[in-house]
């Protein structure tokens, strides 16, 4: 078996080198893709603890009544978009009103990808997990559907699949009886793309969401967090969330 794995990896490496050569040619010709090539990791390389994915949301730029991030998320992850009490929502628009002065504004709420996630702490089987690069996920292969993580999450970020599903997005497996939540579109992140919600927000021209590596001092998000004030939701809990807000 291990012999076999070695063979497997060698083959992958050869493929990768070949591909790299092809790519180098292609990029030299087009001159557009140099940045992403430089940053992409090889498929056999796992998520690394040298990165921590995070998101900065500027609520002052979030459009009134705009729901594009939600729609994009639903499309990417194959959610129905229904909003009944039993339907899944990975991201939702929150309307909040300051009771002291009546100030009203909107913000998207999603899994906050905590450094110390309560959902991971409470999960009896270890299905609820935090990947090395900080993305909090549910391993549906060992999720027994007890829903304790939903009790524990301070952000109401998780949903339970109440019905059998068919025709899932091949990249986003999901099914009845397991808990699920925002994955930062891990399938996109792993090929150096932005989460669907961020892409949609940018496409709309709002630029309210910045996604990037919190540990890379050169990243846009790290620079923004260094130069401007931001808040964590429920900072009192000390969870060190990966999603930060400005303008609350």
């Amino acid at each position: 078996m291990s012999e076999h794995n070695k063979r497997d990896t060698m083959q992958e490496r050869r493929d990768f080198l070949k591909a790299g050569a092809v790519m180098a040619g292609a990029t030299a010709a087009s001159g557009v893709l140099v940045y992403s090539v430089a940053h992409s990791r090889a498929p056999e390389e796992g998520a690394s603890a040298s990165k921590r994915w995070g998101m900065l949301i500027d609520t002052s730029k979030c459009g009134d009544g705009c729901n594009d991030c939600v729609t994009a998320c639903n499309t990417e992850n194959g959610l129905s978009g229904e909003t009944g009490p039993q339907d899944s929502q990975y991201i939702r628009k929150l309307n909040i009103k300051d009771l002291r002065n009546g100030r009203v504004h909107e913000l998207p709420m999603l899994c906050q990808h905590c450094e110390h996630p309560p959902c991971v702490d409470v999960c009896p089987t270890g299905a609820s997990m935090r990947r090395a690069d900080g993305i909090v996920l549910v391993d549906r292969h060992i999720c027994i559907g007890c829903r304790y993580c939903m009790m524990a999450c301070p952000y109401k970020a998780r949903s339970f699949v109440h019905e059998p599903l068919t025709d899932q997005n091949p990249e986003v497996p999901r099914g009845k009886g397991c808990v699920e939540s925002c994955t930062f579109c891990v399938q996109r992140v792993d090929r150096d793309e932005q989460p669907a919600c961020v892409e949609a927000c940018n496409a709309k021209g709002h630029q309210a969401m910045v996604f990037g590596d919190l540990k890379d001092p050169e990243s846009a998000i790290a620079k923004a967090l260094k130069s401007q004030a931001s808040t964590e939701v429920r900072a009192d809990l000390g969870l060190n969330t990966g999603v930060r807000y400005q303008g609350i």
Binding site: Q11, E12, E45, G46, R131, H141, V186
Partner: peptide, 12 residues
Amino acid sequence: DETMRKGIRTTR
């Protein structure tokens, strides 16, 4: 387990 938990996305 490699893909889900470690993010290793080899396709073989």
